[in-house]
Each structure stands twice: as C-alpha cells, then as structure tokens.
Simulated scan of single mutants.
Amino acid sequence: MTTEDAVSRGRAGDDAAFVEVVDPWRRELHAHCYRMLGSVDEADDAVQETLVRAWQAFAGFEQRSSVRTWLHRIATRVCLTAIERRGRRALPMDLGPSSERSVLGEPTTDVAWLGPYPHGTGDRRPDDRVEGRESIELAFVAALQHLPGNQRAALVLFDVLGFSAAEIADTMATTRASVNSALQRARALVREKVPEQAQQKTLRALGDARLNEIVGRYATALERGDADGLVALLTRDVTWSMPPLRHWYAGLEAVTHFLLDQPLTFAWRHRFTTANAQPAVVGYRWSADDEAFVAFVVDVLTLRGDRIAGVTAFLGPEHVAHCAMPPELPRDEPMNPRP
C-alpha cells in the first residue's frame, strides 16, 4: 500500500492501515513528548493519548498537511495541556544551593522530577541523527523545563523538528509574530543553561575505545570502593545529584566527602547503557534481605574532555526498568568487565 492508499483505508476505518500510517512517526513523537514533559512515563501516556485522538479524528484528516505535521500538532497540544496541569520538572540544582558535606536526606515527593531517557530500547530511542541526539541530552532537556509551555513547544518544533513558524502558529492557535517572539526568548534562556559544546561532540572526540575505558574505570572504582580511582576521573568542579533527593554536591571536596560517606560504603554491580544519548551506568546495590544485587540507580554521566564533569544519579528501580535491565542480579554476579 502507498501512503495515500493507507490514509484512504484508515479514514474508512481500517485499523491496520491507520497503524501503517502512524507507526513511522511513533518513535519521533515519543522523543518529542519526552523533551516537552521530561518524563518517560508521561511521554508514554502522551503518545498513547495522541494516537487515540488521531484515530478518533482520522476520518476527517484531509491531508492539508503531512501526517507527520498533523501528528505532532496533536502531540504538542496534548503536552501543553499536561504542562498546564503539572508544571515543570526539576533537578536538585534547580531547588537550592549545593551541600558541602554528605546529607542523609529523604526523597522529596512534592517535586516533579526530571527523569532519564533510555536510549536503544525500541520506540524510546531518540532520533539517530546527530542533531536528534544533541536535543535529547540531559542539559538541553533540563533547560527546556525552565521555559513556559508555549516557548518550549516553539523551540522544539522549530529548532529540533524543523517545522515552520506558520505551522507552529497553527499548532498553538497563535500568530507567527508570537511564535518568533517565543523562539527568541526561549533561545536566550537555553543558551544560558546549556554548555556551548554538546556532549555528542565530546563523545566523538574521545572515540569509543577511550569512552569505554572511562566508563569502565568509573564502574570498577565504585565496585571496589576505590575512592582515589573514582576521584581521579572527576573534574575539579564536578557535580553529583540524585533525584528524588534534594541535596546535591559541587566540587571535588564535597563530592569526595559524599562518596566516602555513602556510595563507596556499599557493594555494587553494574551494567552499561546509554541515557539521554550519554554514557550511563545502571547500579545494583547489595541487599542482604534479598540476597541479591537489587536495581537501585541509573547514573547518567556528563563528560568534559576525558573527565566526568557531572553525575546525575536517578534513584529508583523504575528507571532501571525503563533501561530494559533486570530488577536484580545474583549474589555471584562478577564485577563487570569494561564495556
């Protein structure tokens, strides 16, 4: 079937034809919804709602725009409604200054936390193009969360997905002048918050072999309780945060104090993955009650040169599940080889 044939049959109520029409865009829609909402679970829900609305409205789809444009229009409106209802998502550094010493804090449940975006798990993969990977990086998505919904949508639709100002104005029921104004304000804020060099450029400069060595040394140092080996991998101004914990740490002294007081006192095993198009390590912490290494955290690593400049440790087995990793590892699980 050609696309035109599939559209015609889908408009007539053919479920299989409708799926054929929308499936090529499902992956891109999911990444779009994640950028807008900062949560894999909310992106799942938004894509589902988008497809339900599309199916309900498909009989009236007159192909005045492409299927891609039409679907993104629906998805953007779904996301804007969700943003109005819930507000923006945050990382610990958005909430207050860093802590100078390790703090035993409880999870903060009254904050909508930004979550990681697993890469390489079916429909949850962002665009494989370089610009697609850059626009899913943690710093960029975190910066988007500081924007009002209309500015967030305008920036993502124009700069990431390549829609015209006229198409965006139609999507948001506004004028092209308003879209251009929103773009200008959004770009200014994002420039302030996103490092000049994208992670993708850093990772390409390192090359796979060097990157794998760094990630492997990171996991090995944690598993062996090797503070010196771990600190040697970090920049002097390194940051370490652990949503949903409010406290975070900045600089080698504070981070080292935290590491010695907390992570390096536990037994770990690790699996390697990618999240937000950045290197990531899934951490399993030993549980005497379970007599196994239990899924605990996804560490997303931000590099500067050949050092780790930031660790965003997303606590919770749900993040590990999104990475398509097992919930636990056996007690005899060997220390992981380097990736």
Results as ranks from 00 to 15, higher is better:
R68V: 06
G225C: 05
R307S: 15
F58P: 14
D94F: 04
P92R: 08
M36S: 14
A232N: 13
A205P: 02
P317K: 10
L183K: 01
H322G: 02
D170C: 01
A292Q: 06
P317E: 10
F258G: 01
A166T: 12
N150E: 12
L222Y: 12
D45C: 04
E100Y: 10
L51H: 12
R35D: 11
V194E: 04
T69M: 00
F61G: 02
R224V: 02
Y218M: 08
A205Q: 15
M1V: 13
L29W: 05
R191S: 07
T69P: 00
T273N: 00
D94M: 04
A112F: 00
L37W: 02
D15G: 03
R27D: 11
F140S: 07
R338L: 10
Q63E: 15
G115N: 05
E20M: 09
G225K: 01
A17S: 11
D41T: 14
K193L: 15
T76E: 01
L222E: 11
V40T: 09
T273G: 09
P148Q: 07
G122I: 07
D208L: 11
A169M: 04
I83H: 07
V320R: 09
P334C: 06
Q151C: 14
R53H: 06
G305Y: 02
R246C: 01
L329R: 12
L104Q: 14
D289L: 12
N150F: 15
G283S: 15
L71E: 04
P279I: 05
T3G: 00
R285D: 04
R9S: 10
V160D: 12
E4A: 15
V47Q: 03
D14P: 02
G316Y: 12
A221H: 02
V179M: 02
L252S: 05
P263V: 07
A267Q: 11
A112T: 01
G310A: 15
R269I: 13
V179Y: 00
R271I: 01
V190M: 02
G87D: 05
L315Q: 14
E131W: 13
R217W: 01
R191M: 07
R35L: 11
W25T: 03
A139I: 06
V320N: 06
P244T: 07
T302I: 09
Q145A: 03
R185F: 08
R64T: 00
C33I: 06
E28H: 06
Q197T: 13
E253L: 13
W268N: 08
L264Q: 14
S66M: 04
E167L: 00
Q63W: 03
I74E: 04
S241V: 01
E20W: 01
F258Y: 11
R285S: 10
L95A: 14
A277V: 00
M172W: 00
A17I: 05
N212S: 07
E49V: 07
T81Y: 03
V156E: 09
P263K: 08
V282H: 05
V130C: 01
L29S: 06
T50K: 03
A288Q: 11
